[in-house]
Design a protein around this nucleic acid. Structure first.
Length: 625
DNA sequence: TTAGGGTTAG
């Protein structure tokens, strides 16, 4: 935009030739449009002295300039000038100031302006609603929508897309959606993407998809919304499908798309696809969020080498970068390095947050460092003001449990500030299993089943504990109880990426095109392992079958099939990376250790909780999981 | 003058 007209500038005037009112205002206008903040401010002070005011549009240009330069002090001076000596700015200009204060994070000042406004239009209301939505003051945002309607002001698409961000409750969201349809604003792309996002945040992916599919003209943000929706709700497959469709529709991936795609790769443990995405990330190498997602992808896909490289090269790191790397090292069994990195983080001046401490305690738990764990746990609040939450207690229970201090672990559960949940009790159940404390296991399992009566994993774990202790009657009782309650054990499933394709193996499913070859290979492998002294550990079979039949059931666990397929299909130098839906059983754990040694391969199995790096007959988990 | 999409644990 060009200034309306030009006059000699202020700095050419002197005492003998004082500037005229019009030239003063013109100069001010010019400096504002030229975004020359120092000269505009100088002119403003002269105007103040001469009791002159410019037009609203010019002030709004100056405010834009203050916002761009984060010049809060100057912005306040403009505010004082505009509101001085009884001058009453128009609604338009007050809106501009309100928006300015919101952007500067000064919500209270914006509120005060809003309250004192003689007249409020749709922009005034929307500015406040948007501010409350951003500040997560959701009730306030919704309350203002009602107040606005009561005031007789009609909300527009800006208002609805703002208020939607404040709606995290599906019931309220659906009501709002109805109103939006009724007033005919559903076709607006901003409203649509806000709707998609709200449905996604409420966990209703189908709702999000319906809104998406109804759109005739989709823009790239809407594509990003729907891809993000699926990626964030652990539906990586569908997120990647949508990404393919987005490209087919002629759209290019930007930072947001790539972040979601990386998240999908991370969830599915697709290292090779993740690497391909990495190539596209290179052009946005200064994007912190994207780099953090990349870092996480490498950590969770088992490539700590790549993660370390990325972390080292990052020009900017925030608390998420540090936390991701610390947790990544810890989850992959490199506890000492995780703790060293935490020390480095503190030295760098970065303050850890709640999640950082989960990673640190997880590292201690993994390495069995009881004393260090207690120290970190107790100093969290003191040093960083972080109150320990369930996740931190969970790590400590794990840590104490691993060290065989089951009584201390139980005491800690009782001392928790927050109510223990199923995850807490599961940590205790896991520890009881390792240390074969049947009574405590039974107690922990009861607590879990009170909170989550359909939890098949707990029945299985308890059944395994009974099986370990040859309590076959109890094993049978569990099976009966599961049948009565209609609890079905989710079949074990393992996935492996070969040639950029995902191959799934499910216990008992023989649909893989090479299944005969895989079984043949597996049988040969087992024979060679048996010759080396491998005895299948039949304690991990849920069914109380006998003899050879029990071994067969174990032999076909999905991760074994995936390991064999990996050996058959992947070059020797590539690690065999497998993702599992259930926790790995003891027999598969021994099997993977021995195969890694015998075949000279690196095998990584990621279960829902832990990562197992098998190399040279050892596992990074230290045989505790 | 007001609006939409992306990252760490569990």
């Amino acid at each position: 935009m060009k200034p309306p007209c030009r006059h000699p500038s202020l700095h050419t005037s002197n005492a003998k030739n004082p500037p005229s009112s019009s030239s003063l205002l013109d100069d001010f206008t010019r400096h504002c449009y030229e975004r020359d903040l120092p000269r505009a401010m100088k002119a403003l002070h002269l105007m103040q002295r001469h009791q002159l005011w410019a037009d609203s549009i010019t002030y709004s240009e100056l405010i834009k300039c203050c916002l761009a330069r984060n010049a809060v002090g100057e912005a306040k001076q403009v505010h004082e000038h505009v509101f001085s000596n009884g001058y009453e700015p128009k609604t338009f200009l007050v809106n501009v100031f309100m928006n300015m204060y919101v952007r500067f994070g000064m919500l209270k000042v914006a509120e005060k302006l809003f309250d004192q406004m003689p007249e409020r239009n749709v922009v005034s209301w929307t500015t406040m609603i948007s501010a409350y939505a951003s500040a997560k003051l959701r009730d306030k945002a919704l309350e203002y929508l009602i107040l606005m309607l009561r005031d007789g002001v009609r909300p527009n698409m800006f208002t609805y897309s703002s208020v939607l961000r404040a709606c995290d409750d599906l019931w309220k969201l659906k009501q709002l959606h109805c109103i939006i349809m009724k007033v005919g604003l559903e076709s607006d792309v901003f409203v649509r993407s806000a709707l998609i996002d709200s449905y996604s945040k409420g966990g209703d992916l189908q709702g999000a998809l319906v809104v998406f599919n109804e759109m005739v003209t989709k823009d790239f943000v809407v594509w990003n919304s729907i891809i993000g929706a699926f990626a964030q709700n652990s539906e990586g497959d569908e997120a990647l499908n949508l990404y393919k469709n987005m490209k087919r529709a002629g759209f290019f991936a930007d930072q947001s798309t790539l972040t979601s795609v990386l998240r999908a790769c991370t969830a599915l443990a697709l290292l090779e696809l993740g690497r391909q995405v990495h190539v596209h990330v290179l052009k946005y190498d200064r994007d912190l969020i994207l780099n953090n997602a990349l870092l996480d992808m490498y950590c969770k896909c088992g490539s700590l080498e790549d993660a370390t490289l990325i972390f080292g090269r990052m020009g900017e790191r925030d608390v998420i970068s540090w936390s991701t790397m610390i947790a990544g090292l810890a989850q992959n069994g490199r506890s000492r390095e995780a703790m060293d990195l935490f020390e480095q983080m503190k030295l760098s001046g970065m303050t850890p947050n709640y999640i950082t401490m989960v990673g640190v305690l997880f590292a201690c738990s993994h390495a069995g460092l009881v004393e260090e764990g207690w120290n970190y746990f107790q100093s969290m609040k003191e040093d960083f003001g972080i109150n320990p939450g369930r996740e931190h207690y969970g790590c400590m229970i794990d840590l104490l449990g691993r060290a065989g201090k089951l009584d201390e672990a139980l005491n800690l559960v009782k001392e928790m500030d927050c109510e223990p949940d199923a995850v807490t009790w599961r940590a205790l159940l896991g520890a009881s299993r390792v240390h074969r404390n049947v009574e405590l296991a039974q107690y922990a399992a009861e607590q879990i089943l009170k909170l989550d009566p359909q939890d098949a994993g707990t029945y299985t774990l308890l059944s395994n504990i009974y099986a370990n202790n040859q309590r076959w009657d109890d094993v049978r009782e569990i099976r009966r109880s599961m049948k009565v309650k209609g609890v079905t054990k989710e079949p074990g499933c393992s996935w492996i990426e070969v040639d950029k394709k995902i191959h799934a193996f499910i216990l008992g499913d023989e649909s893989h095109p090479q299944i005969d070859e895989i079984y043949r290979h597996l049988n040969e492998l087992v024979l060679r392992l048996v010759a080396m002294g491998y005895v299948p550990d039949t304690n991990f079979v849920l069914q109380d079958l006998e003899g050879e039949q029990r071994e067969d059931s174990l032999r076909h666990h999905s991760e074994k099939l995936a390991v064999v397929y990996g050996i058959m299909s992947l070059p020797r130098e590539k690690p065999i990376m497998i993702r599992k839906n259930l926790r790995i059983c003891g027999d598969c754990h021994i099997f993977a250790k021995l195969v890694a040694k015998m075949e000279g391969r690196r095998i990584i199995i990621r279960d829902p909780i832990r990562y197992h790096h098998f190399e040279n007959g050892e596992c990074s988990c230290g045989d505790y999981w």
